[in-house]
Design a protein around this nucleic acid. Sequence first.
DNA 1: GTTTGAATGAAAATGAATATCAAAAGCACA
DNA 2: TGTGCTTTTGATATTCATTTTCATTCAAAC
Lengths: 147, 147
Amino acid sequence: MILQKKKTFNDFAAAKGLRSTRQRDVILDMFLSTHQHVSVEDLYLKVKASHPGIGYATVYRTLKLFAESGLAREILLHDGQTRYEHVLAGEHHDHLVCTGCSAIIEFEDATIEKLQEEIALRHGFQIRSHKMEIYGLCADCSAKGQA
Amino acid sequence: MILQKKKTFNDFAAAKGLRSTRQRDVILDMFLSTHQHVSVEDLYLKVKASHPGIGYATVYRTLKLFAESGLAREILLHDGQTRYEHVLAGEHHDHLVCTGCSAIIEFEDATIEKLQEEIALRHGFQIRSHKMEIYGLCADCSAKGQA
DNA sequence: GTTTGAATGAAAATGAATATCAAAAGCACA
DNA sequence: TGTGCTTTTGATATTCATTTTCATTCAAAC
Ligand SMILES: [Mn+2]
Ligand SMILES: [Mn+2]
Ligand SMILES: [Zn+2]
Ligand SMILES: [Zn+2]
């Protein structure tokens, strides 16, 4: 699993003629050990804890490379912070975002995806990507709100 | 139509105890005379042309008020600029965004909206808002790409 | 008219993302 | 293993949209 992902990135790097560096190895390890939806700041702090020499800009640049390699996906929610999440092969999902506690719930809906394609077709539009986010209160937060 | 919208804002302002100012009147008129999806910068320039005294910050603040009053909707596409669009009573739509020419096509799909509600229900999630954007190439741009 | 607090506008501050550039490091080749 | 060339890095500066600050102006209640 993790080895497979490292291979994905190494193949990408090789194909692009990128050099292999200690920094990129460390950042990749750290990214693979995180859970969903890390902000650049989050990951930077995590990296800095064990490798204080690694700079901010490098984390930014490297995460962009991960996204480009297909390893990660960049997501922009409504808080002005870019986040990155793991991309599982052939999988796609969208998000429920709690405005109370910032929890993010993932979901997949094949019917919606299909309908999106039909809409695009109807407008002669070629889909390259899409985003769909539902904002509101998660179960916990709406329970608390009423208590 | 326009009178109705002015009333919407005036009622909101009254309810909130906001004062009525020349600036807000001008900005409202200008906003109502624009077409879809104005950026703050766009509107500021338009306002400045006839009312050079009105400041940047006031346009920002006032557009936020319009959104709060239900008159306008804030939309954040992937170009780092907040835009505002008119809200027609009881209407909702989403966007197809062309990454070639920046054209924005609006669409509505009741089935998708319904499915979103079902998904939320399944997760005990209370929807407050949602966004759905499809990025890609519009008919014109994909035709040009092939030519 | 006077008073009082909200609104305004110019300018400064913020904050995320990107660019700059000298120093460090990877890598091909001898 | 060393040399030379090029990429990468990291500290810092810069950019750009947005927000904040704060002295001044103004709306509106008295
Ligand atoms: Mn996710
Ligand atoms: Mn629209
Ligand atoms: Zn929550
Ligand atoms: Zn186009």
